[in-house]
């Protein structure tokens, strides 16, 4: 069966500056796919491009962008609006940006349902209450009558998830859904998402900068750097045998509790993400890469390292490392 969401060579520019430069990834049905990368690498813009929610001035093009077999690039604005919040739903890092402070939680949740599926407001409120229970909110009846500012950050994010589930979406896009939350609440929300995925057969595109989250929830991973997907792999393989020098560097930077060697420095990647001007060619990581040479300024091949594992680099795969453990 074909992937639920299939994106090939997505390009997004804002007044001729490229934010996404040929990103390709696939979200399979019933799986969690993580887009991981550091700030500014184009994760949010990629998600917004898929949802056709780019800010004004954002130009999108793609070789392919299909959702459940439908070609997203050829849909009209009205057709796209019918998909959004319905068959594909999105939740954001800061729930307050997508909740209206002037309306109760209940009326905002009910509105999503009546807009897409029709039916009575009463039925929509019943469904809202049921979903709130489902996402672990105690006393949903009381919460439905409250305004967004009366809830804690963790509760607001649960409300956002419940709201996104109102119309039984096939795809949930979550952009850094726990970045603003405490680690304790983060674990609760991610556990909830993992359970929902299993029980509802939901597919999730999860955007994060946190490799710990990726390891614990993803089935497949796409690593982004400077607007490109530089490595794609099944999760276990990415952590066991990362091939791209950026992925390797990133993994070495993460302090792991219980495995910390306090007198040793952490691994780190020197320098910063470069600005990518028009006409840039070659590997965007070369200013920070220990393996860079002059061939890295030319076109870079996408190399296969396994059935579902590939990466963008001049270097050959390390097959010894890639042997199944």
């Amino acid at each position: 069966m074909s992937a639920l969401l299939d994106v090939e060579e997505l390009q997004v520019t804002f007044n001729r500056t490229a934010a996404v430069r040929g990103a390709s990834f696939r979200v399979e049905r019933g799986e969690t796919h993580c887009l991981v990368g550091e700030s500014g690498c184009g994760k949010s813009v990629t998600a917004l491009a898929v949802m056709s929610l780019l800010a004004r001035g954002g130009q999108r093009s793609a070789k392919k962008m299909s959702f459940a077999g439908a070609d997203l690039t050829s849909l009209s604005d009205r057709e796209m609006a019918r998909l959004r919040g319905n068959r594909m739903a999105m939740i954001f890092q800061e729930p307050m940006t997508s909740l209206n402070p002037a309306f109760t939680i209940g009326s905002q949740m009910a509105e999503v349902m009546t807009r897409h599926k029709g039916g009575s407001r009463g039925a929509a409120l019943d469904r809202a209450a049921e979903l709130m229970g489902r996402v672990g909110i105690t006393a949903p009846g009381m919460r439905l009558g409250q305004f967004p500012h009366q809830l804690s950050g963790g509760l607001r994010q649960r409300v956002m998830i419940a709201m996104a589930l109102m119309c039984d979406p096939e795809l949930l896009i979550a952009d850094e859904p726990t970045t603003a939350l405490d680690v304790t609440v983060q674990a609760q929300i991610l556990r909830l998402l993992a359970n929902l995925k299993r029980e509802l057969g939901l597919s999730i595109l999860l955007i994060t900068h946190d490799l710990g989250i990726v390891a614990r929830v993803a089935d497949h991973v796409s690593v982004m750097y400077a607007g490109e997907v530089v490595e794609r792999a099944p999760t276990a393989e990415l952590f066991r045998a990362p091939q791209h020098p950026y992925t390797r560097g990133l993994l070495s930077c993460v302090p792991v509790p219980g495995r910390v060697q306090r007198d040793r420095p952490l691994g780190s990647i020197p320098g910063v993400v470069p600005a990518i001007g028009p006409g840039f060619a070659g590997c965007a990581f070369r200013s920070r890469c220990a393996h860079a040479d002059e061939t890295c300024t030319r076109a870079i091949p996408r190399r296969r390292a396994g059935d579902a594992h590939d990466y963008l680099c001049r270097l050959e795969p390390d097959w010894a490392e890639l042997q199944p453990a």
């Binding site: 909110i137 304790t184 983060q186 609760q188 556990r191 990726v214 390891a215 990415l238 952590f239 792991v256």
Partner: peptide, 25 residues
């Protein structure tokens, strides 16, 4: 203990732990 359990170390396959703190903030 709950704080330590909620740290998501980059260890694939371990899943997300149930830290059992409830929703009372």
């Amino acid at each position: 203990q709950a704080l330590l359990e909620s740290v998501l170390t980059p260890e694939p396959g371990k899943g997300v732990p149930d830290i059992g703190l409830g929703d009372a903030m």
